[in-house]
């Protein structure tokens, strides 16, 4: 059941960009999280059974270059405007997880006509004063485990992040942290101007949220479902921030259902 995948580099307005494309069927643009899941993972493979999945690495993540020209989340959004042009994708549905969800919303504000539908999974970008966000930029791995996963002993954690400085994925993880900080250090993981612009996103939006997300509380999802013109919300019980890892089957089924409706 392995799909055919191809990893390559494309030039996006001077930024050398790593992209993996796999599967068959209609196109789907997957915008990854701060964790930097830019390698083909279990749930990408599952999505590829139904879609042609485009998995680019944001500038600064994986082997994508160009972080020096990224100064804010808006620069990421413009990068994806350019990437859609390079890939020749006129309109496309987006799955955006965490940082990728935030990027997706900013992109949809800039170019609403290019985004047909959007799934937001535990998305960053919004600050709810009454529901404070957790501390992502810690280098305490044990703390991060409990912050990000419903079950801090879950075997899926090993799929998602390095567990020590000796782990050979540590460099990629540190790069991911750096790129995330570039756009999300201050203001912390959000754009204070974003709520005022959400009305500009006309496409259908499906919001998925882990009820036990300690990084980005579920209150954020509840805010978004009201603020976006055309959105619905599905809350996953006993699920943390890393929902696509923790609930891969249900996550993929949600994507399939929403995009084929």
């Amino acid at each position: 059941m392995n799909s055919v995948t191809e990893s390559k580099f494309i030039d996006v307005r001077g930024k050398r960009t790593q992209i993996t494309i796999g599967g068959a069927g209609p196109a789907l643009l997957y915008l990854h999280s701060a964790g930097g899941e830019v390698e083909w993972t279990r749930f990408h493979e599952m999505l590829a059974q139904y879609f042609t999945v485009y998995l680019p690495a944001h500038p600064g993540f994986g082997d994508s270059r160009g972080l020096e020209n990224i100064h804010s989340i808006t620069d990421y959004a413009w990068h994806y405007v350019d990437l859609l042009d390079v890939l020749g994708l006129e309109t496309v549905p987006i799955v955006g997880f965490s940082l990728g969800g935030w990027t997706g919303m900013e992109l949809a504000i800039l170019r609403p006509e290019r985004i047909s539908k959007m799934l937001l999974v535990n998305s960053a970008g919004i600050r709810i004063p009454e529901a404070p966000m957790g501390e992502l930029f810690s280098d305490d791995i044990e703390k991060l485990k409990s912050l990000l996963f419903y079950d801090p002993n879950s075997p899926v954690i090993e799929e998602a992040m390095p567990l020590s400085y000796e782990d050979n994925r540590i460099l990629m993880w540190l790069k991911a942290r750096e790129a995330t900080a570039r756009v999300g250090w201050n203001p912390y993981l959000h754009n204070p101007r974003l709520p005022d612009h959400l009305f500009r996103i006309p496409c259908p939006v499906r919001i998925l949220w882990g009820n036990d997300d300690h990084l980005l509380p579920v209150a954020t999802g509840k805010f978004l479902v009201d603020a976006l013109p055309n959105a619905t919300l599905e809350i996953f019980e006993k699920t943390g921030h890393m929902l696509p890892y923790e609930q891969a089957e249900r996550f993929v089924e949600e994507v399939r259902k929403f995009l084929s409706d």
Binding site: F137, Y165, L171, K175, E178
Partner: peptide, 14 residues
């Protein structure tokens, strides 16, 4: 903190 030093330098000191 992220980006304070290059990933290689941070890993080395870590």
């Amino acid at each position: 903190p992220p980006g304070y030093s290059s990933p290689k330098s941070i890993a080395r000191i870590g």
